[in-house]
Simulated scan of single mutants.
Amino acid sequence: MSSSKKEAIFIASLIILWYSSNIGVLLLNKLLLSNYGFGFPIFLTMCHMSACALLSYISIVFLKVVPLQTLQSRSQFLKVATLSLVFCGSVVGGNISLRYLPVSFNQAVGATTPFFTALFAYLMTFKREAWVTYACLVPVVGGVIIASGGEPSFHLFGFIMCISATAARAFKSVLQGILLSSEEEKLNSMNLLLYMSPIAVVALIPAVFIMEPNVLEVFVSLGIQHRFMWMVLLLNSVMAYSANLTNFLVTKNTSALTLQVLGNAKGAVAVVISILLFQNPVTTIGIGGYTMTVLGVAAYGEAKRRYK
């Protein structure tokens, strides 16, 4: 087999694993939080972060997936800690929203990330894009407004948490560019995850005890009632790390444009699979709104590429 064919198979395998991990985490989150009735999104996030901390250490220190980068100063540590707390808030918010919203609508709202990224980039760095780029954000937001009106399972609190999680995710990406902008302080995404994850776990432990004090009791009870729940939680946590690892590897082995297209398609695939699995009702208006958002995101990506 030629080297080009081997490379194509390798990249295709990475993309499949990336899709499977991302969509798997979403669906298993929904299964645990709604179907199993395990309504503890903060504890669930702590499990994800614990798995990311352990598996990042194994991957980088023992398996040498990427070279280990060390933190150079207390200032750099504080910057990473700030990013960790913002990232942690976005994951918690996303998990809370899945208690109340179907995965399909959750993905529709999540597709507005470019809008918040552009907004925070302008507010925090005064970075301006071409007017065409901003015009492409109109259907991104408009599509979600239309999808919200046509969503049979719309829940206001779930929607607010989902929007907050999406905004926090965008804020983290902009903040990361500002805080870790110097060459000495830059960390690749896997090393950043290695340092962010344990900080997130430390922050989440007291939050779990204060806000979800009966989690262990319910966890044991549901584990006895549902034989495979513990296995689902373990698989879910491993997939959370796999999603980060494969995202890094896909980014490394493909172009930015390819990643943009694949990311848009991933959201659409997640929507279709979630509707088939969970049988949540959808309307023509909702589908139309989500389609408008995805097309707007695709146009935004293309406009950024052309007018940068």
Rank of each mutant, 00 (worst) to 15 (best):
M231T: 15
T70H: 08
Q225E: 15
S255I: 03
K127P: 01
N214A: 12
A200L: 02
Y19C: 07
N35Q: 11
A303P: 01
E184L: 06
I11W: 06
Y122C: 04
M49F: 15
A207M: 15
L137T: 10
A240K: 05
G37Y: 12
Q279C: 01
H48M: 14
A268C: 02
Q176K: 04
L55Q: 04
A53E: 09
M49Y: 15
A165L: 02
N106D: 09
K172S: 13
S104G: 09
L44M: 14
K304Y: 00
V218F: 08
S274T: 05
T45S: 15
R169N: 15
S274K: 09
I160V: 13
S34K: 15
Q279R: 11
F278Q: 11
L156Y: 13
L71Q: 10
R227L: 13
S173I: 02
A299Q: 09
V138P: 00
V109I: 14
V272W: 04
P102R: 09
A111K: 13
M229A: 14
L193N: 10
V261Q: 12
A256P: 04
R99I: 05
M124F: 10
L180E: 10
A51T: 04
R128S: 02
V132K: 11
F10D: 02
S148T: 13
I273L: 14
G142S: 05
A8P: 00
A303N: 01
N191C: 10
F87M: 06
Y307V: 02
T133Y: 00
G110M: 03
V141L: 14
M124G: 08
G142Q: 05
S153F: 05
Q176E: 10
Q76P: 03
Y122W: 14
F248N: 05
V141F: 11
